[in-house]
Design a protein around this nucleic acid. Structure first.
Length: 569
RNA sequence: GCCCUCGUAGCUCAGCGGAUAGAGCACCGCCCUCCGGAGGCGGUGGCGCAGGUUCGAGUCCUGCCGAGGGCGCCA
């Protein structure tokens, strides 16, 4: 059992035992919160339980704390318990808990940090860019965030499905189809003009070339109204392939790609509207069909079917909700840019109007990224004539550095991403700092092996020999991992993992500087090798959750050569 | 005008209502006989403003100021 669980249990028992003294119902006590104090004078762990209980107990917090302390057994893992400050209970543990914790981490191996299966089915829908062009930097944060959220959901035991929803109906798709059609005609030496507001990027020519290779040549002889649709039909899968290839490079893989068009063709949109109408949330006005979203807090009602007879994207969104829940998901997570914040109330409202608990839908919004280069804004790509593509970003800074950097900030925070910094900082960039810690351990373990150092199974090693302050601090840090994962899941905040990984790396580097691992002392060497191995495992797991690779070795670049050059000059 | 998010060190940003607010970069010192110095140790420096809730507020509430985004029968 993890130390945290043991302590929560001990605190809860002590509080239960003390409860009658204060006229409290022992079965109505809140779950104790654990805290790791920043200063070591405050012990190894602490709880604010007495401060929470005091008002109900009608006693001073310190009195309650004294009572809890009196009921804490100090013959087990707790060596000493004391009341501090306004009424915290601080406990000092026997040092054996550190060795026990390390053993627990090694015991669980790669499962350490992963929680028990919940059986809950969770869907995460992200990226969902229209297949009218390559992914661009505007999609980067969505992809990195959505993928990490999905990973973290899995880590806390949920069954996760990753889905990409694409709009393949509507005016933008027509423009896309007609743009490809134009380029296709050019390939055949025919006159054609790009439509107004059409897609002018060079990539359209690539798509046209690919269409040319697959499309029945007779399609070009079709009447104009059918021709662009035939071209579009061929172009969408090609565009999606290109997007999928980019995502693959970014380390993102979806379980399913969902077509909006299928919602139109299956009649699910009509069914959704009928269902909402039956529930009294749909009405007709001005030749259009409306959803009474104001009943759910929207500032105006929204159109479902235009007076032209065309359903809106929002109508498809409603049908999509039914479709998703129909597939058995307990919980839906949407990852949206901040520009969609207005849609939150509508889609949740639609879910409610359709008879679902809106709390089962969750929208994670992220603020925009300002991409810069040397402080100057960069948006445009020469190749596409549009935003800088995700491929170009990956080419320039690498998928690892891009993903890591995008996940160092809370989704709520608008962030700056300086391409020059993220690639130039090779020496100081946090992503390399963390990866380096992993590679350093790997190198250390390799070296031990090369030197013929035997390494008995950890069960046969005295982990209690790890007595140095930096060793203790490293183990304490490793012990936090499961809680960090849980917090990252609860708040859809994978940036906690990047921050945590930096903390583990720092604790390791400190340990490494203070304690020589491979020495003449065989027993100590064994213990330190296992501590190093546990560190590697945790760093690797944290990086895996944010979708960044954990290298076994890294090239030496930067700093050293620079200094040498300066020194000789 | 209304709605959402943000305002923390010179810069970029962390900080689940808890004790002395952290990290990276930048800047100033120090540490290589030795497992990867892409490292370690130390220093300078900060919660936009005003109220409120609370035993306790960077964190919650209200107002103000400032920044970004959204308010289409657009996608």
């Amino acid at each position: 059992m993890a130390i945290q669980d043991a302590l929560v249990d001990l605190f809860a028992r002590a509080a239960r035992a003390a409860a009658p003294e204060f006229g409290l119902d022992p079965d109505q006590l809140p779950q104790p919160d654990l805290d790791r104090p920043r200063v070591k004078e405050h012990g190894d762990w602490s709880t604010n339980l007495a401060l929470v209980l005091a008002p109900k107990a009608k006693r001073s917090p310190r009195q309650v704390a004294e009572a809890i302390v009196a009921n804490l057994p100090t013959d087990g893992v707790i060596a000493k318990a004391e009341v501090a400050g306004p009424g915290f209970v601080n406990v000092f543990l026997r040092h054996t808990w550190l060795a026990d914790t390390l053993a627990e981490i090694l015991q669980q191996g790669d499962d350490y940090g992963r929680w028990r299966k919940t059986g809950r089915k969770v869907q995460v829908e992200y990226v969902s860019a229209n297949p009218t062009g390559p992914l661009h930097i505007g999609h980067a944060r969505n992809a990195a965030l959505g993928d990490a959220i999905a990973n973290v959901q899995e880590a806390v035991g949920n069954d996760v499905q990753r889905e990409y929803y694409y709009n393949d109906a509507g005016r933008q798709m027509e423009l896309f189809g007609r743009s490809v059609e134009t380029r296709l005609l050019h390939r055949h030496g025919k006159e054609a003009k790009l439509p107004e507001d059409g897609y002018a990027g060079d990539y359209i020519k690539d798509v046209a070339a690919a269409v040319d290779a697959t499309l029945d040549p007779r399609a070009l002889d079709l009447p104009e109204a059918e021709r662009w649709q035939a071209v579009l039909h061929a172009a969408v899968p090609i565009m999606l392939d290109m997007i999928e290839t980019t995502l693959e490079r970014f380390g993102v893989r979806f379980d399913s790609y969902f077509s909006e068009r299928t919602l139109h063709e299956s009649g699910e949109i009509d069914q959704a509207i009928a269902k909402m109408r039956q529930a009294g949330y749909v009405y007709d006005a001005d030749g259009a069909v409306w959803f009474a979203s104001t009943k759910f807090g929207d500032d105006k009602d929204r159109v479902l079917i235009r007076s032209s007879g065309q359903p809106t994207y929002f109508a498809a969104d409603c049908a999509y909700v039914i479709d998703k829940f129909g597939r058995g998901f307990d919980h839906l997570i949407y990852v949206w840019g901040a520009d969609h914040h207005g849609d939150v109330v509508r889609v949740k409202g639609a879910a409610e109007a359709l008879g679902f608990d809106p709390a089962r839908t969750e929208m994670v919004l992220y603020q925009f990224v300002a991409f810069r280069r040397g402080g100057q804004p960069v948006q445009m790509s020469k190749r596409t004539g549009q935003l800088l593509t995700l491929d170009e970003l990956i080419d320039e800074v690498g998928a690892d550095a891009a993903r890591y950097t995008l996940l160092t900030r809370s989704a709520d925070s608008a962030m700056e991403f300086d391409i020059d910094e993220v690639k130039r900082q090779t020496m100081e960039n946090p992503v390399y700092y963390v990866q380096y810690a992993h590679a350093r351990v790997a190198s250390l373990l390799r070296r031990a092996e090369q030197q013929g150092v035997d390494r008995p199974h950890w069960r046969e090693v005295d982990l209690g020999l790890l007595e140095h302050g930096s060793e203790h601090e490293l183990i304490r840090t490793l012990a936090e991992f499961p809680d960090i994962v849980e917090m990252a899941a609860r708040g859809h905040a994978p940036h906690r993992l990047t921050k945590y990984a930096e903390g583990v790396a720092a604790a390791f580097h400190r340990f490494y500087a203070d304690c020589r691992v491979i020495t003449e002392d065989a027993n100590l060497t064994h213990a330190r090798l296992w501590l190093s191995a546990a560190t590697k495992q945790v760093v690797g797991s944290a990086l895996a959750l944010i979708g960044v690779s954990a290298p076994e070795s890294m090239e030496r670049i930067g700093g050293v050569d620079q200094e040498a050059a300066d020194g000789s000059g």
